[in-house]
Amino acid sequence: MKLGALVLGLFLLLGTGGAALAVQPDEVLKDPAMEARARTLGRDLRCMVCQNQSIDDSDADLARDLRVLLRQRLVAGDTDEQAKQYLVDRYGDYVLLKPPFKTTTLVLWLGPGCLLLCGIWAAVMFYRRRSASGGPEGGQPLSEAERLRLKRLLSNDREG
């Protein structure tokens, strides 16, 4: 049990702390505040080549190009929103790791919740039906003869 917890802890640690940044020293901006903005933006921008890494995490050539471009936009005076939009205009919403909430993404955002509600509804219906039918077997109440026989058996048991 302890070992299990240890292994789990180790995995969690690797999973969270392990994301090594691919940002190279020569890309880093002199202004720390602007660099921090670039890092925050870069975390949420998808590397189009590797597809499940952010541009900050990816070593791909295109990811590097996009990091450099992003920093140039910020230096040129773009707001965070404008710099992000610049890439969305070229690569679409796909470049955002967090998809925006709009009509084309309704299923994506609401689907899991709807499925959960369906599941809860099904579970409620299932248990309600089971309790309405009188127990797990759903049988009928005992007849008078059966009740007498049960009583006899139980009392025999106690005496024996």
């Binding site: 189009m48 080549v49 050539d61 295109l62 190009d65 996009l66 471009l69 070229r90 690569y91 679409g92």
Partner: peptide, 12 residues
């Protein structure tokens, strides 16, 4: 430098 590529949305 691939900048025109980025303007077109090239990713490979």
């Amino acid at each position: 430098d691939g900048r025109v590529g980025i303007d077109f949305g090239v990713y490979g």
